[in-house]
C-alpha cells in the first residue's frame, strides 16, 4: 500500500538579496531586493508501507524542504503530497499523529529534566494509552538500554544517550512513518550501531516506514535497499542501491600480496592504484576485463601469497554522481 506519494512537487522561496559592507547594511534598512529561488521541482516518488528509503543529496539540494512539506510544516508552491492518505499541510494535526521525527541536531527532550518526564509529556501530547505507553517504554528500554540513564537530567547525558532518548521519544506513539534527519551525526561507532539496530527493528517488527536523510552513507548501506538521490532540487536517481552500484560502480580493485619484492608490477588491463610494501592495488574496469582473466595474468607473472577484490563503496559512487552530475551515468541506467 502506498503510504507517501508526491506528484510534481515544487517549492519556490523568495529571499532578500543582501549587499555587502556597512553601506549595504544601512541601505537594506530602507529598500530590499528579492530573488526567487526554486528549492525543489518535479519531485515525484512514492513509498510503500514498511519501506525504508534513503533520501540523499548534498547540502542545499532540497532535502529538508521536501521533508518539511511531507511533515506539513511547509505548503508546496504546486504539486501534490499525500502522506498516509492525507495532505499534510491541510491536516497538520492528524499528520502529526501519523509521523515521528528525529532531528539529529535538535533534541525534543527537556534539557533540565530526566528522560522519563519528557516521555510523560509526549504521552499526553500524542494521547498514547497508558498500557501501550508502558509496553513501548519497556520494549525500547530493552533495545536502547535506556534504564541506565532514565533518571538523569538530559543535559548530563552523552550525545549517544540523548539520541537514544530522542529515538524512543519519536516512536512512543507508534507512528506509521518516521522521518530521520541525520540521526547518527556526531555519534561514536557503538551508538551509531545501536541506533541503526533500533531503526531496523522497528521497521521489521512494526512495519514502520522510514525516510532517512543522512550524509553518513554507512547508515544507508546498513538500513536501506532503495535510495532517492536529489540534487539541485530535482530527483536524479530513484531505485535500488545495489543497482546503482552495479551500473555505476564499474571499477573494482584487485589487491595482491606479493611473495617476493618485485620492483615494478604491471598487469595488462589494470592500472596501478597504490602500493604499500608487498601489497599492490590494481584498478580495473570490469566491463573491459573479467576479474578471472586479470587474476590469471597476475598468477602467470608473479608469485603471490594472497589476493582479493574490493567492491567500490557507495560513498565514492554517490560522490561521483554529485560531482559529475546525473548525465555522467551510463545511458543504460533506467531511472
Amino acid at each position: 500500500m502506498t503510504i507517501i506519494e508526491t506528484v510534481d512537487l515544487k517549492k519556490v522561496f523568495r529571499s532578500v538579496v543582501r549587499r555587502p559592507g556597512l553601506s549595504g547594511a544601512f541601505a537594506a534598512l530602507f529598500s530590499r531586493e528579492f530573488e526567487e529561488k526554486v528549492a525543489v521541482e518535479n519531485v515525484n516518488f512514492s513509498l510503500q508501507e514498511g519501506e525504508i528509503v534513503g533520501y540523499l543529496g548534498p547540502n542545499g539540494a532540497g532535502k529538508s524542504t521536501t521533508i518539511k512539506m511531507l511533515t506539513g510544516i511547509l505548503v508546496p508552491t504546486s504539486g501534490v503530497v499525500r502522506v498516509a492518505g492525507i495532505v499534510p499541510s491541510e491536516h497538520r494535526q492528524q499528520n502529526g499523529q501519523n509521523i515521528g521525527v528525529v532531528f539529529g541536531q535538535r533534541s525534543q527532550l527537556y534539557w533540565d529534566l530526566p528522560l522519563r518526564e519528557s516521555f510523560e509529556l509526549l504521552r499526553a501530547i500524542y494521547d498514547v494509552p497508558r498500557d501501550r505507553f508502558a509496553q513501548n517504554l519497556r520494549h525500547f528500554s530493552d533495545i536502547l538500554d535506556l534504564d541506565r540513564f532514565m533518571g538523569t537530567p538530559v543535559r548530563q547525558l552523552s550525545l549517544g544517550e540523548r539520541m537514544r532518548g530522542d529515538f524512543a521519544a519519536a516512536m512512543l506513539h507508534d507512528p506509521k512513518i518516521v522521518f530521520l534527519d541525520e540521526p547518527t551525526i556526531g555519534l561514536d561507532v557503538v551508538a551509531k550501531e545501536a541506533i541503526r539496530e533500533f531503526i531496523a527493528t522497528m521497521n521489521r517488527e512494526r512495519g514502520t516506514t522510514v525516510v532517512l536523510t543522512t550524509h553518513d552513507l554507512a547508515d544507508v548501506e546498513r538500513l536501506t535497499r532503495r535510495i532517492i538521490l536529489i540534487d539541485e532540487g530535482t530527483v536524479i536517481y530513484d531505485g535500488l542501491l545495489a543497482r546503482l552500484r552495479e551500473e555505476y560502480g564499474t571499477h573494482r580493485i584487485l589487491v595482491v600480496t606479493l611473495a617476493e619484492n618485485y620492483p615494478d608490477v604491471e598487469v595488462e588491463g589494470a592500472q596501478p592504484n597504490g602500493r604499500d610494501g608487498n601489497i599492490v592495488r590494481l584498478r580495473f574496469n570490469r566491463h573491459e576485463v573479467a576479474a578471472e582473466t586479470l587474476i590469471r595474468r597476475v598468477l602467470d607473472a608473479y608469485r603471490i601469497t594472497d589476493i582479493s577484490i574490493e567492491e567500490p563503496d557507495i560513498d565514492s559512487i554517490v560522490r561521483r554522481i554529485y560531482t559529475e552530475g546525473y548525465n555522467a551515468l551510463p545511458a543504460a541506467l533506467p531511472i
Partner: peptide, 22 residues
Amino acid sequence: DGEFDRLLIRPLDTLFAVIVIP
C-alpha cells in the same frame, strides 16, 4: 532558531502547543 517547526508537527493546535511548552 527553528524550534517552531517542531511545534508544527505536533497533533495539537499550534497556539495551544506553544502555551504548554514547559
